[in-house]
Design a protein around this nucleic acid. Structure first.
Length: 273
DNA sequence: CGCCAGGACGCCC
DNA sequence: GGGCGTCATGGC
């Protein structure tokens, strides 16, 4: 990744990033595509730092109104710019299916999101579709003046006071996650550093957190790249292409591989429909 | 109208 | 330990 300061903006060159593929692939739910002079512009935030970012052509990006210090301390980390995805994809391409998946949507990166926001977001995601997940999270942030509420704030709520979210049966799970995080029953920072099976077990102490949600929190919110969320689509990939198990050499970054595979299987399924 | 959504829980055997 | 009905809501 190369960057330079240009006026109030940071200009970035990074061939292994595509904004549509990365910001609208179901790993994060608060990025909105807006109309602009550029081909592709999103507004969103990491915790409560807002950003407008544009992709002008393949590999070229504008981080609007971004201070160089903020770019270094926040956005390099969030977009995982310190990881060489070309190298990752070269490694994955030993495997035929993964090779195809990487060349289909090679601009996907793993965003290093906030663990607390991820926990709530993926609790909301269960048995739900992406447009409605976004709607619920929108209403949640809107309620807190366009910011994602802290666990302390949310721990003041209960199933009934969260009715405005229209999150259905998930409201009681949100309340439980908030109270357990706020009172220290679930220490997300410590969980993030635990051996992966201990971390999984600790997350599953929260109501509404099962295998899939725990895996998503570990991958998207704690940068545990070995975490491997298995949904109906990935189940299909495993059955169809990996009957003898997922290749050993890709295990430590299985979660990143999973993102390429998820996009790939959905695209070829849509084609054949 | 019925089907499904990047699931988890509770209860059953 | 696996199988299955149930859980709200809304897009399609």
């Amino acid at each position: 990744m190369d960057y330079r300061v240009q006026g109030n903006d940071i200009i970035v060159y990074e061939p292994d990033l595509d904004l549509d593929e990365t910001l609208d692939c179901g790993q994060a739910f608060r990025w909105k595509k807006i109309a602009s002079d550029h081909d592709c512009t999103y507004v969103g935030s990491f915790v409560n730092d807002k950003l407008m970012v544009s992709q002008t052509e393949k590999g070229n990006f504008i981080f609007h109104n971004t201070d160089e210090n903020d770019f270094i301390s926040k956005w390099i980390k969030y977009f995982d710019f310190e990881t060489d995805y070309s190298e990752l994809k070269r490694c994955f391409s030993e495997d035929e299916t993964l090779s195809k998946a990487c060349s289909f949507a090679g601009g996907i990166r793993l965003l290093r999101q906030d663990s607390w926001e991820c926990l709530i977001s993926f609790i909301i995601s269960q048995n739900n579709n992406i447009p409605r997940i976004k709607g619920i999270i929108d209403r949640l942030c809107e309620h807190y003046h366009s910011k994602f509420p802290s666990c302390e704030q949310l721990s003041q709520e209960n199933e009934d006071s969260l009715a405005y979210l229209r999150s259905g049966f998930r409201a009681k799970y949100i309340a439980d996650a908030a109270s357990k995080t706020a009172d220290g029953t679930a220490k997300l920072r410590e969980i993030a550093a635990m051996p992966i099976d201990e971390a999984r077990a600790a997350l599953k102490q929260i109501k509404g957190v099962g295998p899939k949600v725990a895996e998503c929190v570990l991958l998207y919110g704690m940068y545990r790249t070995e975490a491997f969320p298995i949904d109906v689509w990935i189940k299909r990939v495993l059955a169809q292409y990996y009957p003898d198990g997922f290749p050993e050499f890709a295990r430590e970054n299985a979660g990143i591989a999973q993102q390429y595979l998820f996009h790939y299987i959905r695209s070829i399924t849509k084609q054949s429909e």
